[in-house]
Measured scan of single mutants.
Amino acid sequence: GATAVSEWTEYKTADGKTYYYNNRTEESTWEKPQELK
């Protein structure tokens, strides 16, 4: 299949934890999204 550009962006909180934000759905998660595995 075609490689889609991930909708997920990786961010870090002030205390250094990583989370992921989906630009399309406006969803955020602590877990690494399936698309990034």
Results as ranks from 00 to 15, higher is better:
residue 1 G to M: 13
residue 1 G to V: 13
residue 1 G to D: 13
residue 1 G to W: 12
residue 2 A to M: 12
residue 2 A to W: 13
residue 2 A to P: 14
residue 3 T to M: 11
residue 3 T to N: 14
residue 3 T to I: 14
residue 3 T to Y: 05
residue 3 T to K: 02
residue 3 T to F: 08
residue 4 A to S: 14
residue 4 A to K: 05
residue 4 A to V: 13
residue 4 A to F: 09
residue 5 V to H: 11
residue 5 V to A: 14
residue 6 S to I: 09
residue 6 S to Y: 09
residue 7 E to V: 06
residue 7 E to Y: 07
residue 7 E to C: 04
residue 7 E to L: 06
residue 7 E to Q: 08
residue 8 W to E: 01
residue 8 W to T: 00
residue 9 T to N: 09
residue 9 T to M: 11
residue 9 T to E: 11
residue 9 T to V: 15
residue 9 T to L: 09
residue 10 E to H: 02
residue 10 E to N: 03
residue 10 E to S: 05
residue 10 E to P: 06
residue 10 E to V: 10
residue 10 E to D: 03
residue 11 Y to K: 14
residue 11 Y to L: 15
residue 12 K to N: 06
residue 13 T to F: 04
residue 13 T to D: 13
residue 13 T to P: 01
residue 13 T to C: 04
residue 14 A to G: 08
residue 15 D to N: 08
residue 15 D to V: 01
residue 15 D to W: 06
residue 16 G to T: 00
residue 16 G to M: 01
residue 16 G to F: 01
residue 16 G to E: 03
residue 17 K to Q: 12
residue 17 K to V: 10
residue 17 K to F: 07
residue 17 K to T: 09
residue 18 T to L: 10
residue 18 T to Q: 04
residue 18 T to Y: 10
residue 20 Y to W: 15
residue 21 Y to D: 03
residue 21 Y to S: 03
residue 21 Y to E: 05
residue 22 N to T: 00
residue 22 N to D: 02
residue 22 N to A: 00
residue 22 N to F: 01
residue 22 N to W: 01
residue 23 N to I: 12
residue 23 N to W: 14
residue 24 R to Q: 11
residue 24 R to W: 13
residue 27 E to P: 00
residue 27 E to V: 08
residue 27 E to N: 04
residue 27 E to F: 04
residue 27 E to K: 06
residue 28 S to V: 15
residue 28 S to K: 15
residue 28 S to H: 13
residue 28 S to G: 12
residue 29 T to G: 03
residue 29 T to E: 04
residue 30 W to V: 08
residue 30 W to K: 05
residue 30 W to H: 09
residue 31 E to M: 07
residue 31 E to V: 10
residue 32 K to S: 04
residue 32 K to Y: 06
residue 32 K to D: 05
residue 32 K to G: 03
residue 32 K to W: 04
residue 32 K to R: 10
residue 33 P to W: 01
residue 34 Q to Y: 11
residue 34 Q to N: 14
residue 34 Q to K: 08
residue 35 E to C: 04
residue 35 E to Q: 07
residue 35 E to H: 06
residue 36 L to P: 04
residue 36 L to I: 08
residue 36 L to W: 10
residue 36 L to E: 08
residue 37 K to A: 14
residue 37 K to Y: 15
